[in-house]
Design a protein around this nucleic acid. Structure first.
Lengths: 158, 158
DNA sequence: ATGCTGGGTTCCTTTTTGGAACCTGTCAAG
DNA sequence: CTTGACAGGTTCCAAAAAGGAACCCAGCAT
């Protein structure tokens, strides 16, 4: 299968990755969450080639994850900002950072920490069940085929 | 910057992506979480080339995300299973699936649903603050430089 | 007229994929 | 005792993507 066919798969993870699963896309989004909005700033901070950066930004705008907003006229200059759809990737980014903090950090610990504005504390993201509010791990989950997808259950589950 | 230098960056997200940020790696892990363990099963389900699959599995084993466990002798056959480090990627996978469900699904809805064994309900992952337990969104977070990293703060934050 | 700035595009080389064929132990059948 | 199947790879080559540097363009400012 070609990578470009991933979005046709009957799998939400594959479809999500068809948008954000690229090598560079997630680090672009990380900087977007930090407030970096301009082409040149992204290029400098990421060390990405202009070619690839332009391509990824274009695709993220096409997918509705970022949008271009003018910040000056004459000449028109535009910056890239997260849409609501893009902002909703925050749990993914938090989860990746948290895993990196736990498993890839050196002796200096986490380079960046998250402070929860409401409670004022340095926080880690915890994933809980939307029904009972209890923390969930891989062991606590059973996977089932969605109601509209029963016919494909052999393909969806091993 | 070359992609291979990402793990040297002072950023937990970049370091995490140096392990799981590859095009195919996350779908391999998705299938691992579903219980797919053998080379051939992964190849069939993913439609990935054997070449790339072998390479990604080798890297995931090197990084301690998967381990090889023999399931028969003569000839020795080994399967790939998630380590504890790998299992801790579950929040990342859940968050990606949830985003895909919300933003990339067709009219049939989520192909796969997660049932929380403890409460028996179909659940969505919710990210909450480890201190106060309240749900967090991108707007609720302020980012600060880690205590051991003050010297690099200009580089870390825009 | 010359140069600078932000945001790209073009061109060429190096790397990485996709796709198919081939290799390696072990067993089982003809 | 040759042939074939099976699981899990490796090798080879063509096609696609990434890296790197140079170039383009509109609108200032000198």
């Amino acid at each position: 299968m070609r990578w470009d066919d991933l979005d046709k798969q009957p799998c939400s993870l594959a479809r999500a990755l068809s948008v954000v699963g690229d090598r560079w896309t997630m680090v672009i989004l990380r900087d977007s969450f930090l407030g970096v909005r301009r082409f040149e700033d992204l290029e400098k901070r990421l060390g990405i080639t202009r070619h690839v950066l332009a391509d990824r930004l274009r695709k993220l705008v096409e997918q509705g994850v970022l949008y271009k907003a003018p910040y000056q006229q004459k000449p028109v200059r535009e910056e890239y900002r997260l849409t609501e759809k893009g902002l909703e990737l925050h749990p993914v980014v938090m989860a990746l950072v948290h895993w990196g903090d736990n498993h890839m950090a050196d002796e200096r610990g986490a380079p960046i920490v998250h402070v929860h504005k409401q409670c004022g504390q340095t926080m880690q993201p915890v994933t809980v069940c939307s029904c009972c509010g209890e923390p969930v791990t891989a062991h606590d989950i059973r996977v089932e085929v969605g109601s509209q997808w029963q016919a494909l259950s052999e393909e969806l589950l091993p």
